[in-house]
């Protein structure tokens, strides 16, 4: 079954991350990279990306069918999505195991609609 793991955090987390000393940031990136690598090799990761900060996001919404483009993410909140992974595993417990071993903060686990 497919799940989407959303790597979430607060704005403060994001700022802290961006202002980290280079060696710390590198270590953090390395740990996250290794997580992706290990699970990809195990055949459990179908896709995933690290996202740039929310100040780089743009939202398109529709007003009477007319697209309106605005700056920033759709959901105005203090929490942000830093990245995601699409995983293919047996059940929720296996997805939760992956989430528990993610080295960089909280993870939301969403089951995907099966087609």
């Amino acid at each position: 079954m497919k799940y989407v793991l959303l790597f979430v955090g607060t704005m403060e987390d994001q700022e802290r991350f961006e202002n980290m000393p280079a060696d710390q940031m590198e270590a953090g990136m390395k740990a996250a990279g290794k997580w992706f690598e290990d699970y990809s090799r195990a055949g459990k990761i179908v896709g995933g990306e690290q996202l740039k900060g929310p100040q780089t996001a743009t939202t398109v919404r529709f007003n009477d069918g007319k697209p309106i483009v605005t700056d920033g993410p759709f959901v105005e909140s203090k929490e942000i999505i830093g990245g995601f992974a699409v995983v293919e595993v047996k059940d929720l417990d296996e997805a939760l195991e992956m989430a528990k071993s993610w080295p960089a903060g909280p993870v939301e686990v969403w089951p995907a609609v099966e087609r």
Partner: peptide
């Protein structure tokens, strides 16, 4: 059902 919570007794460190 939807999130496929497994029907089992967990093993090991879990």
């Amino acid at each position: 059902v939807e999130a496929n919570i497994p029907y089992r007794v967990p093993q090991g460190p879990e």
